[in-house]
Structure formats: structure tokens, C-alpha cells
Write a protein that binds this DNA or RNA. Sequence first.
DNA 1: CAACCGTGGTC
DNA 2: TGACCAAGGTT
Length: 359
Amino acid sequence: MRDVAENLPDMLPDLLPDMLLAWYDRNARIMPWRTPPSQKQAGVRPDPYRVWLSEVMLQQTTVAAVRDYFTRFTARWPTVADLAAADDADVMAEWAGLGYYARARNLLSCSRAVVRDHGGMFPATRDGLLTLPGIGPYTAAAIASIAYDEPATVVDGNVERVISRLRLVTIPLPASKPELTRLAAELTPPSRAGDYAQAIMDLGATICTPRSPACGICPWRDPCAARAAGVQAELPRKSPKAAKPTRQGTIWIARDGRGAWLVERRPDKGLLGGMLGFPGSPWDGAGGTAPVTADWQTLGEVRHTFTHFHLILTVLAARLPALNPERGYLLPDPDFRPGDLPTVMRKAYDVASVFLTDH
DNA sequence: CAACCGTGGTC
DNA sequence: TGACCAAGGTT
């Protein structure tokens, strides 16, 4: 029998997950994609489709923003087969406003791959999930652990922050990512992997927050190396990001004599890919050609910030008896829903709608 | 592998 | 007001 004190450093990695799981059992947040405690107690497993959908929606997106989208998607498409059979335009419209629209296109191709290549069942392993479009290292580990209880390690922004503090990792991100992944994997328990994954993310979201972490109520307060050193609020360090340039462009919004709107479907690749929009100039400040000859009125400007640049868009509008546009197509007013537009387009619509709406 | 890809909330 | 931030993935 070895000395207990000698064993302490080896015991800690085993004790840490249990400390966190005990905290999670009392403090897990209730969310639409989580199994309710009553069902969970009865041994009900999460639906992989709902786990997948929620995880994709949550990529770089807050829980508050995802809630209603998740509810609408699952009400309209209850199974992966339903989603696979949906019209692309309907899915893109339902995703409008959530951002990162490649996720919605990948959602469709992934659902169709699951139906076509996997008999409508999601692969049950991390490695199998990784082969699907829109599922990367994080999402594969999340689905594998939450839906199938595979002891896969999730490393998202929360985990990066929690682990960098717990283990006092001072190398800046993203260079520290491999080290953080290794340290996180060391802690992942062989059982209750799904609960553990959600627990460490809940901890990061509610206690080990970016600013002013609530160390006083943290289940990992005692073993936290950053707290011991008093530097928890300074971690994780991050390499400086490039400044955002400002780009300019013009957008043209027109209606014909019947009230139909001149719109276009944006190409699948690139910014706002696959989304509905209005014809516009290139966003390089060089101007551009209107989609149709008309007496265009300048209505104002729209400002919008994307991930890596600011945009100032000049909004022009026109109402013509007949339209034979060189670009785009006419969408009858009853079929035109501003909510189907990505946010920057909806902002432009808001500017033009007053001028283009009958009184 | 660094750049690209949205949006809304927060301080 | 502007920079940071959020359950990242793809190329």
C-alpha cells in the first residue's frame, strides 16, 4: 500500500471529473435539446438528430440566439429524414438571421448523406461523424459523447478557457490549442462522457466566464492553478487579431407594378452563400451597374459588421410599372418575407420598405 | 494554416 | 462606440 500523500497527484485527475459531475447534477441548465431530468433518470437517451442540430446551431452562436431556431426547426422537421427531404430554400429561409450560412447548406448535405449513406441513422462514433459535412472535431466529439456516451473530448471556447485556467496554460491561443486538447483529454472520464462534456461547457458558460469568473462558487476552485496564482481573469491569452477594414457598396431594391420584389439567390459559395438578397454592386467601393434602368432614389445608408470587415451600403430604390431585370428575378409580394433575408439585407429592406410600400 | 464566414449581446 | 465574445468548420 503506497502512501496516500504520494498518491495525491495521481488521484487528482480522477477526482476532478467527479467533482464537476456532482456540480452538474445539481446545476445543469434546462435547454430544449437536453433530455429533461425525469426522462434522463428513466434512462432515456438523447436523440442524435436533435443533438446534431443543436450542436451545429451552437457553433459560434449563443444559447439565447439558438433557442427559438431550434424549436422552429424541430417542429417543422422532426427527423433527419424530414430535413433531408426539405426544399433548400425553405431551410435557408428558416436559418435566416442566425449567421454563418454555410452551416445551413452543410446541414442539408449532411442530412442527405445520413439518409443516403447511413440508412437514416447518424454514425455512432466520433470518427464516423467526422466524415460528414459540417461536423468537425468539436461537433463530432459532442455528438459522440452526448448521444452515444463515447468518451470523446470536446474542446470549444469554454473548454479552452476552463482548461487554460485550471492548468495555468499561458501560451496564447491558437498556438496553445494542441496543449489544451491534450490536457482536456486527460480529464475526460471513461463513463458519463456526455454529461461531462456538457458540464465543462456549462461551467465555462456560467462560472468560469471570460471576465469576472465566479471562482467563489466553482467546483474546481481548489485545484485551479490560475486562481492559486491570481491570474484567472487574464487567461486564456489570445494572439492579437487583424483590424477590420471598411468596405462600401450599393444595393438596389425595386418593385414592379404588381408589387413584386426584385431579388436574387446568392451563389452557394462565399459570403451569405445560398441566401436570398437584393442585387448589389461589388463591395469594393468601385460602384457597379444597376440591375435595371430606372429613376433610382438614394434612400440612405446601412451599416453592418461581418466577421472580418465593416460594410457601408448605399440603398437605392425604385418603383416601375414593368421590370425586365438583367439580374435577379421577381418575387410576388405574398411570397416575399423579410424574415427570409440575412440581417444585412433585412436592414436594407427596412430602409427601402417605407418608400416602396403603398399608403 | 491563416483567412474566410454572421449576428447580437456585453462592457 | 467599438472591441470582444459565443457549444467551429472549411479551404
